[in-house]
Design a protein around this nucleic acid. Structure first.
Lengths: 222, 222
DNA sequence: CATCAAGTGGAGATCGGATCTCCACTTACG
DNA sequence: CGTAAGTGGAGATCCGATCTCCACTTGATG
């Protein structure tokens, strides 16, 4: 799919010297456009799409980014930082269980809003090493949140850090199908899962988001 | 994508007269092959793939089935019947809660083993009316299982029948990513969700399937 | 067993969509 | 103002999927 970058014409990686002002402006526009397009339609869009959305010519896009992968890297570096931040914030929440819940909610929201992010972090789309590296940077914080919640006795003991992305993956599947009909539906199922994750519980937590009615359901399942 | 069937050469729907014996044999082979290929690789395979797998020429495939959709219908009619049967069996289980669990397990297993089935019933891939019709036939039985479990007081009251396919969709997402690494992993998350679905519970149900370790995880996320 | 309509295989025509280049033109910068 | 840097976008190239066509084989029938 991705061709090997040819030797001469446009290999991009090391910015050999500063770009001209207008060129740099276009580069930023491309990144911003890519961010939006990836979020909406996933990583499987053409550079032509991104270029059109940015209001520049295809040629310009290819001159700045040899292929989609370079663009993806440029776009997701900052997002990944933010995700790590969210997990770390969860650690500083005074209540360990609430911290865990907050982490699921905060990261879940990002995933709900950004299909590209789901694809990279949860579905392993695109360059495998990129995804792996990203998750590796995310793991320590997530592990800490889990461990702390378990020590507090509120989270069942048989949960491990790898369960977290799998759960987010499940919620992502819901979002994928319901986003046009009810973008927040995933919170319903998160609540359900959280009730399953509790070490002990008295009564079920009330579910946010009523279930899909028949009509919504039909539309969600296209 | 699917072209309008042309007037003369190979429109297939009404079997105008009985097929010659060898032709009928090939037809069956094609359906059997399609069943397998759809189960393994989903509905998005070419008729060429199916034909090769059946050991017949492409031409033969196209002579019998004007397009993939006809083949899909031929393949899934029987499977759908079986799914309905599973829900009905759940109703006859003496314990209403156990019946519900059995329904999730039995249908979940089918979904786990058959990607094409997931795509039709859970992901609304392919002809939208086919999926809708199929689900419509499945709904009454599922609704009854839910209602009975709720009346027994074991299933929380805020669950509705449309939650069932959404939950299966979540589990399907797990299966999709873990099938090469650990095909049964979905049962772990089903147990978690079931614990969340219980109206009241003392201690968590032990989870089947230990979580993915780091290596398995990396492979699952490709 | 001879005849011939029915059926077959699979090479390749056709289509469509994605990727990427090329170059005449425009623009920023010294 | 001169010129190196940058631009746009038409179209060359590639690729894979769909579907047809026809020389050849096979099953049914008398």
């Amino acid at each position: 799919m991705t061709r090997q970058a040819a030797s001469t014409p446009y290999p991009k990686s090391p910015p050999e010297r500063p770009l001209r002002a207008d060129a740099e402006r276009n580069r930023q526009r491309l990144i911003a456009a890519a961010q939006e397009v990836f979020a909406q339609r996933g990583l499987d869009v053409t550079l032509d799409d991104v270029a059109r959305h940015a209001g520049v010519g295809v040629g310009t896009a290819y001159r700045r980014f040899a292929n989609r992968d370079e663009l993806i890297d440029a776009v997701f570096e900052s997002t990944l930082q933010r995700m790590i931040g969210l997990a770390e914030q969860a650690l500083s929440h005074e209540d360990p269980w609430e911290g865990l819940v907050q982490m699921f909610l905060a990261t879940g929201r990002h995933f709900a809003d950004d299909r590209g992010l789901r694809e990279i972090l949860l579905e392993g789309t695109g360059a495998k090493d990129r995804s792996a590296a990203a998750r590796e940077r995310l793991t320590p914080a997530v592990g800490a949140v889990i461990a702390r919640a378990q020590e507090s006795g509120r989270l069942r003991d048989d949960i491990t850090p790898t369960d977290v992305p799998l759960i987010q993956l499940m919620l992502g599947a819901v979002t994928q199908h319901s986003r046009d009909v009810r973008p927040e539906l995933w919170t319903r199922y998160l609540t359900l899962v959280l009730d399953g994750l509790r070490h002990d519980r008295a009564r079920p937590t009330p579910l946010p988001q009523h279930a899909l009615d028949q009509d919504e359901f039909d539309r969600a399942m296209r």
